[in-house]
Design a protein around this nucleic acid. Structure first.
Length: 306
DNA sequence: TCACGTCAAGCAGAT
DNA sequence: ATCTGCTTGACGTGA
């Protein structure tokens, strides 16, 4: 018999809610920077974030990825606002809501953050941007199970060296960043196997992205992959996080789906058993698919793979 | 009001 | 060489 994993697995979606009017990721052009504009934008984003979380709780969506645009230009030199102090109370209020409702939180710095870059400037800026992400999660008062997920980075014609450089730089990070950072297999360069090798070098937990694994596979079945990644998470890291998506029909291989392929999703859930984890749906219609996933999991845990 | 060129930032692969 | 996609298009000028 299947255990009732659906009681534990949380479903989430990234950053944006298309049902609500509000958003947590509004920004503006660097050219239009002013402290006033920044304050207004962040106020709006924090308010939007809380509204999205409340929507999610009502719908039993208890995993959420907070956008990196929450504080625009947070790590940019133009930023002259002590935003951490200025918005301390707002962050605290949102964080208390998250904790009271047992919401799991992740963040995903965007493509410009390349820890293993062969350019010093890119490396430096990446660390500053990671610091910003860690500060957001700290201001929310979240434990170290709130994670910052990152791709390994560039290859620069020598994958082995570039993996070693990642591991070295990971070891050198401040603990505030290191305790939250996790790596994710990507769709073009670093496979699941590569990520597991980096875990052996430096201990960084590995997030399994099932769709990237289809597109850029190192051969493991879903069951094998989950067994291996789950071994990279410590108790203090919380339940492992997994990203799920499926192919958009008729589009280039690797293109994320616009909406959920329900049969593919059910099959993934079946194949994933008996592992337990929190599941982020990287599907373009966002909360709509997340809602459907919550329904599917609560309907009946006994569906079988086709 | 709306069309559309452009946006802080990197990298790989396709065209 | 230039364009596209990436966890997410959206800002803002000019007509």
């Amino acid at each position: 018999m299947h255990q009732r994993f659906e009681q534990y697995m949380k479903i989430g979606y990234p950053c944006i809610n298309r049902t609500l009017e509000c958003s947590g990721n509004s920004t503006f052009r660097l050219k239009s920077y002013s402290q006033e504009r920044l304050i207004k934008t962040v106020e709006n984003n924090l308010d939007g974030l809380l509204q999205m979380l409340k929507f999610n709780v009502k719908k039993k969506i208890l995993f959420f990825r907070i956008t990196s645009d929450l504080v625009p230009f947070a790590s940019h030199e133009i930023n002259d606002l002590d935003w951490q102090s200025y918005f301390k109370d707002e962050f605290k209020e949102i964080g208390e809501y998250i904790i009271q409702n047992d919401i799991r939180i992740s963040m995903h710095p965007d493509q410009f953050i390349v820890l293993n870059s062969n350019k010093d400037g890119v490396y430096h800026n990446s660390v500053e941007e990671l610091r910003y992400h860690a500060q957001v999660l700290n201001l929310l008062g979240l434990k170290e199970d709130a994670k910052i997920q990152l791709h390994v980075g560039g290859v620069y014609g020598d994958k082995g060296k570039s993996m070693e450089r990642f591991a070295e730089r990971y070891r050198e990070l401040d603990d505030e960043i290191k305790k939250r950072l996790i790596i994710e297999n990507d769709d073009v360069s670093y496979t699941l196997k590569n990520c597991l090798e980096i875990n052996e070098m430096c201990g960084v937990p590995v997030l399994f992205d099932s769709f990237h694994h289809e597109v850029n596979s190192s051969g493991e079945s879903i069951g094998e992959a989950l067994t291996k990644v789950c071994g990279t998470w410590n108790a203090s890291d919380g339940l492992p996080m997994v990203d799920y998506s499926s192919q958009e029909p008729g589009e280039k291989k690797g293109k994320h789906g616009e909406s959920m392929d329900e049969e593919d999703f059910k099959e993934f859930i079946c194949r994933s058993r008996p592992h337990d984890f929190d599941l982020m749906l990287e599907i373009k219609d966002k909360e709509k698919s997340a809602l459907r996933a919550v329904e599917i999991l609560s309907e009946d845990g006994r569906f079988e793979p086709s």
